[in-house]
Amino acid sequence: MRRRLTELGLAAAVVTAVVLTAAAIATSWGGWYWLFGAAMGLCLGAIALARRRKPVAAATLGLVLAMGAVLVANLAGLPREPGPAGILALAVLVGMVVRRGAYSKAAAVTAGALTLVVVVFLASQPVGGEVNVVAALNAFGFAGAVATGLALRLADATRKETEARVRSEERLQLARELHDMAAHHLTGLVLQAESARILARTRPEELDGSLAEIESAGSEALNAIRRVVGLLRDDGDGMSRRPAPEQVRALVQRFERHGPPVRLDLPEAVGAWPPEVAGTVHRVVQESLTNIAQHAPQAREVTVSVSEDGDGGVHVRIADDGPPGGRSSRRGGYGLIGMRERVEALGGTLQAGPRDGTGWLVAATLPTGYD
């Protein structure tokens, strides 16, 4: 839908530029002088609208066609080319190649655009240092297209690098969580299996009890791993498009399928949180519930609270009443280091540790960037 609206907007802008330019030429030049410029503007606009299939070929064709239009207009005494509609279409073509094309192709298209600017400047026959308006528009249009394309290319590269780093961190985090869980339970199963082998040789009458213990431990390990995997499962784009409170509610619902009941406190309406803030709120709650499922399955009640204050701050609080033993705010395997890095990267603060009396508390404060 967004792409379709963009294309419709470009088409409307090209047609508007063609109509206004044709009207201006018809008023000042008279006759049919406007026809050639209008035809060229529509042709270049059509090429720009078809750019997505082969952007480099479209940009090359547009530049060659514009170059020919400049020469024809100069020899036939017609208004200078390319006009505003053609400049807009060519700027879109050049900007797209500069943004998405290979470096060699982007450089070649940029060189072609620079050549066209020089040709238009020479064809405008400047007198007394005055440059034709069309030449100036071409220079500014292509300069803006190249600059915009480079800026978007840099933004795309930065975003891809960030996404790759985040994905790598998520994979490492998932590996740590599963390792912590699997190593604990599987070690116990191995030891019990070794004991069963000894019992089979020395006291076979006790073997059934030992096998029952192995079965019980295996079931417990399977349930624990299912809880962790269920919480760490990343719903990707489906989650990112949902408001932060709904993301938290979905996490809690998954947690309650295998864990204790959760007392959930969410704001009825929130401001337009930036994506990185909403994502961090989601991760803080996710990591905290994962830790509870993994290290405090005997907790009887969990509290999850998300609130927003009047100063543009988001407060996240996750508490449980399970024993704090075995959990450490300094141990990276529980994801607390990752949570802290996420929160502090946005200028927020995070505290994690035992509560007064019993249980564990994770509290984070995040600025949303608006007042």
Rank of each mutant, 00 (worst) to 15 (best):
G83C: 10
L78D: 03
R80L: 13
A73Y: 11
I87V: 14
L93M: 13
Y103N: 02
A85H: 10
R100D: 14
A73H: 13
G77I: 05
V98M: 05
A76E: 01
P82H: 06
N74W: 13
V98Q: 02
M96D: 12
A102H: 03
G95F: 05
P84A: 14
N74C: 06
L88K: 10
A76Q: 03
R99C: 09
E81Y: 00
L75H: 14
P79E: 10
A73M: 06
I87N: 01
V97T: 06
V92L: 05
G101C: 03
A89E: 06
L75D: 15
A102I: 02
G101A: 09
G95Q: 14
M96A: 08
G77N: 03
K105H: 14
L90E: 09
V98A: 04
P84W: 09
N74T: 15
G101N: 02
M96K: 06
A91E: 04
L75R: 13
R100Q: 10
I87W: 00
G83S: 11
L88S: 09
L78I: 07
L78C: 04
A85N: 11
G101F: 00
K105D: 15
V97K: 02
I87L: 04
P82C: 00
L78P: 06
L78R: 10
V98C: 03
A85K: 10
R99Q: 14
V94Y: 13
L88Q: 06
V94I: 13
P84F: 08
V92H: 11
E81S: 13
R80Q: 15
A73S: 15
R80W: 14
Y103I: 00
L88H: 05
V94L: 10
L93K: 08
R99P: 09
A73W: 07
